[in-house]
């Protein structure tokens, strides 16, 4: 088996299209995870026991089962009850739900780390609950969360090849289809590794910077 540069340039456009989808899925998945995490945290803090228990159980359930199974469920099982989703959308929903349960834990820890005295001072200052969240809680709770959230961002990025299982044409899937049609594996699969490595390295450098800037979560 010899490394064929000509073949590399030939398949590059397809692989780059795959990279685009991989990055897109990561960004959309992260955005959804950020929102899902917020919803979970708010629901779990709800005074309504039925709401907090149900959401708590669902979150544990999602976190305790493999992402791949969830992706299959969303893409192949939901159509049975009439919910037919395009592959990328199904993938983003899967990533967002799965990682949303992790971001919820980051939010929860960040909020719980805020001393009780801050809530009490806000109340003694007669701030409303919304004002308390905006002006007292979030400005203090969010910065320490950023490194942990960035970690999950990178972890999610590295799990996007799972989306190939539900026919999303991300990087891994493009590489596989190139390989299958040309019977050459070495270049496409090596390049997949290189792309992931390069993007991960760039992200890790960004993460180190965020950690220095905002400090690690205790």
């Amino acid at each position: 088996m010899e490394w064929d540069w000509e073949f590399v340039w030939e398949i590059m456009p397809m692989l780059l299209a795959g990279v685009r989808i991989t990055i897109l899925a990561t960004i959309l998945g992260s955005a959804l995870a950020a929102v899902v995490g917020l919803v979970i945290v708010i629901a779990r803090r709800s005074a309504n026991r039925a709401v907090s228990r149900t959401v708590g159980f669902l979150a544990e359930f999602i976190r305790g089962t493999p992402l791949l199974v969830q992706l299959y469920f969303i893409f192949y099982v939901l159509p049975d009850i009439g919910i037919l989703l395009p592959p990328l959308l199904a993938g983003v929903i899967g990533l967002g739900l799965h990682y949303g349960t992790y971001t919820a834990e980051v939010y929860r820890a960040g909020i719980e780390n805020l001393p009780r005295g801050q809530w009490e001072a806000a109340k003694a200052c007669n701030l409303t609950p919304v004002q308390t969240w905006i002006h007292v809680v979030m400005p203090q709770a969010i910065p320490p969360m950023i490194p942990a959230l960035a970690n999950y961002f990178i972890a999610m990025f590295k799990e996007t090849p799972l989306l190939s299982a539900i026919t999303v044409l991300e990087l891994m899937n493009q590489a596989k289809s190139v390989a299958n049609s040309s019977y050459r594996y070495i270049e496409p699969i090596t390049l997949v590794g290189v792309f992931f490595l390069v993007i991960s390295l760039i992200s890790v450098i960004g993460l180190r910077w965020l950690e220095k800037r905002f400090g690690r979560v205790a």
């Binding site: 005295g117 001072a121 200052c125 701030l127 002006h135 400005p139 203090q140």
Partner: peptide, 27 residues
Amino acid sequence: IGMVFQLFNLFPHKSVLDNVTLAPILT
């Protein structure tokens, strides 16, 4: 009613003046 606490409970992310003006501006 206002209260002063044993452990101060100032808002650490706000300057001294902002600590004092936050509540009047908001409430």
